[in-house]
Design a protein around this nucleic acid. Structure first.
Lengths: 237, 237
DNA sequence: CCGGGCGGTGAATCGGCCC
DNA sequence: CGGGCCGATTCACCGCCCG
């Protein structure tokens, strides 16, 4: 029976106090990328940047989305270095990013010691059209490993791209919530019975997917509101 | 009736001598990314890196695939800066890259003066599975613009995701040849009756797509073998 | 219970106005 | 003149309602 733990608080404060070794780190940080100017990025909350001005839902805003690109790279590098320490040799990191922060994310991943292994695009069928230009309908997952990637037994083959829309309606509790089906593909990078760590757990989708795949889960979430709904979802899973 | 020109020679030598203004630059440079180490990358020709050792075809090798990452960024930045000079305000650049060179390519694009506008993944359904890991089945097109992107009349909406396998069999004349259907989507970023420039024309697929979409085409190709087959394909289109 | 139709939305972006 | 703020915009897709 897989088990789970959710720590409440700041990732950079809590990670140094942990000592359980894990097999995979899956992280969906605030991208810090909305807005055209640095002032836009720093001044607004995530809701103002990422949610349509006429959206009817009342999902809560989230913190930690006010860094400029250098600050973001540095912060993410620290988080990833702390998770690297907790990861077994052969373990993997999977980090979400949008197109604009992809190069910064690859810098942070490699600065933290991970070997960069690839990009897995995530295609979102419900996305805004762009007038006179190419639609921006993908987010991206960067894959890194600690040393040579683990050999699985039996051998597994994971997809090179993902597809899935954000949950809608009453199952949605977070502005940037990921579909469980997408996360279930990703957590399979951990070996059978392994442990997955998510330092930016949000609404806990990574944990739900891990439990469904028979993996243990350790999460960290700063926002009390998110942590509470994550605990509910994890307990139900 | 759209017309085309193909210059034979090195892009960095020829670009400064051109003075026709263009609406879009589409470029598929040698990625310089095969091999695990810098020594691997520099020692081999493109054929050894990108083609299976048991491949049955005998397509010619290509030059310009022996730079390390710093050299690649610098070279690509020079090419893109020279094409920037020839591009009308509001025009676009579309640059192909694989996952490993994506950050370097975004650096070069922006260093050359272009505003980075997004990433369009290109999925190649025929790709090798990765043992115990995520398949690498996408390449990426980086979109940049010179100033604010041109307003089209009528307004167009271009895709954020491309699919198409590399040509096989006797229609394939180049190791890294792109499908015409994919290139036709991309050249549409140029306005009706506009001109497309490809400084690394290869087998001329960009030009074929441009002509089919009613656009003019200017290409540059270094390899005499490739240039000859490109001329054949362009004349037929 | 199933199918068709309708209404709402998106990890924004852009133009324009005001200070 | 530059920066900040406001509101209009776009359509494929998904969920829900109703027949």
């Amino acid at each position: 029976m897989p088990n789970w733990t959710l720590h409440r608080g700041d990732a950079l404060t809590l990670l140094p106090t942990l000592d359980t070794l894990v097999d995979a780190v899956i992280c969906d940080p605030p991208y810090n990328s909305g807005g055209r100017t640095n002032a836009d990025r720093r001044a607004q909350g995530a809701r103002d940047k990422y949610v349509s001005s006429d959206a009817a839902h009342t999902l809560p805003d989230f913190d930690g989305d006010t860094r400029d690109q250098r600050g973001y790279t540095h912060w993410l590098g620290l988080v990833l270095a702390n998770t690297y320490r907790l990861t077994r040799s052969g373990g993997s990191a999977l980090v979400f990013t949008d197109w604009a922060q992809l190069p910064a994310t690859s810098d942070a991943l490699q600065a933290a010691g991970w070997t960069w292994r690839g990009i897995i695009p995530w295609r979102k069928p419900i996305s805004r059209p762009v007038k006179d230009g190419f639609r921006r309908e993908c987010e991206y997952v960067l894959w890194g490993s600690r040393g040579a990637p683990l050999r699985h037994a039996p051998t597994i083959y994971l997809p090179g791209w993902l597809e899935g829309s954000q949950p809608r309606g009453k199952t949605r509790v977070h502005i940037t919530q990921k579909p469980v089906a997408v996360m279930r593909q990703l957590v399979r990078i951990a070996p059978e019975g392994g442990t997955v760590l998510d330092p930016c757990a949000g609404s806990g989708t990574t944990g739900v997917a891990a439990l469904q795949e028979g993996l243990h889960f350790i999460g960290i979430e700063q926002s009390p509101t998110c942590a509470t709904s994550a605990e509910g979802r994890l307990a139900a899973a």
